[in-house]
Write a protein that binds this DNA or RNA. Structure first.
Lengths: 167, 167
DNA sequence: TTACAACAATTGCAAATGCACCTATGGTGT
DNA sequence: ACACCATAGGTGCATTTGCAATTGTTGTAA
């Protein structure tokens, strides 16, 4: 009888994270991406490519939590729209490397400062020490959550499995 | 020339939040919800109802970041499956009050402890002080992000506009 | 009271999503 | 060399999604 079977939403981290994530997406889509003809998924793909360079689709999928089949079609559209290229990897004929075009790079050069600015708006009122704790805590949480629950894949391979929905 | 036009993903809060959110959803869906025949959206609706009692659909939509039209269909399915009831509000014939059935309550009594446990797993390695800062920071961020950007709706109405995608 | 605006919920419809399956290539062990 | 499994990517198809109406209701101002 100790514990009321409720969740205090204002304290429940999954809820808080979902809300902040949704608010971030809402604002960025409404204020910046729509105008550029992009969706949030496009933005995430472009960020990964612009920050980490050419990638295989499967790796982009892993880093964005977008399903590989969805991503396949998404990249096809982005190729049609001229933001990225998709070409077979040298010396490996089943992999495909996706990378930014000049146009994609240009769009990101314009959008990234806005992305930074959104973060700045979001963290207004927090000091550096708190911000640092938040960042480190989120990284730690991600690690905790992506650890094998018990005896899952006994052998090697650090991660690989992931993404069901886009949260 | 000062700023390289990139985002350090490991430090970029929107990215971190998206990743942690996705990881939380992945695990909870895979480990608990699938088995109960529920999706993440059902869970979010049930949490809101079980924590805050009977609600209008529009308010549930606001609190879950689910679009009202999507929610309308979602609730219809949940009614068919016996988790909630939907009945017109007394003295107001255009509103509908959604609330848990005994079955819905029972499912939540079983799931909520798992929801708590997931949070516990996620925050392993963080101390109370850090946890407190993370919670307060997220609440603050949500507030910062949902403030009117400038001169948006000069008159009344605190919020109302929201949710585009489900993040 | 009679218009008219705001609001809550629903529905039509096209687009997006994700699972299951398929194809093609690469790697491994015998 | 061969069979075999794992991997990367793409497709078919049913379901889900969300925007734009549409319907019905309430509130309010002339």
């Amino acid at each position: 009888m100790a514990d009321r079977l409720q969740l205090e939403l204002g304290d429940y981290l999954p809820y808080l994270i979902n809300r902040v994530g949704a608010a971030l997406v809402d604002r960025f889509v409404a204020e910046k991406l729509s105008g550029a003809g992009l969706g949030i998924a496009d933005w995430r793909v472009l960020v990964v490519l612009s920050t980490r360079g050419a990638q295989r689709q499967v790796d982009v999928a892993e880093q964005t939590s977008i399903d590989v089949s969805t991503l396949s079609r998404l990249i096809a559209r982005m190729v049609r729209n001229g933001f990225v290229t998709r070409e077979r990897a040298p010396h490996n004929n089943r992999e495909v490397l996706v990378q930014l075009t000049a146009k994609g790079r240009a769009v990101m050069d314009r959008l990234i400062p806005h992305g930074r600015q959104l973060e700045t708006i979001a963290v207004e009122g927090l000091n550096e020490r708190e911000l640092d704790i938040v960042r480190r805590s989120l990284r730690q949480m991600y690690g905790n959550l992506t650890q094998r629950p018990a005896g899952d894949t006994p052998q090697g391979s650090v991660s690989k499995r992931s993404a069901r929905k886009g949260v």
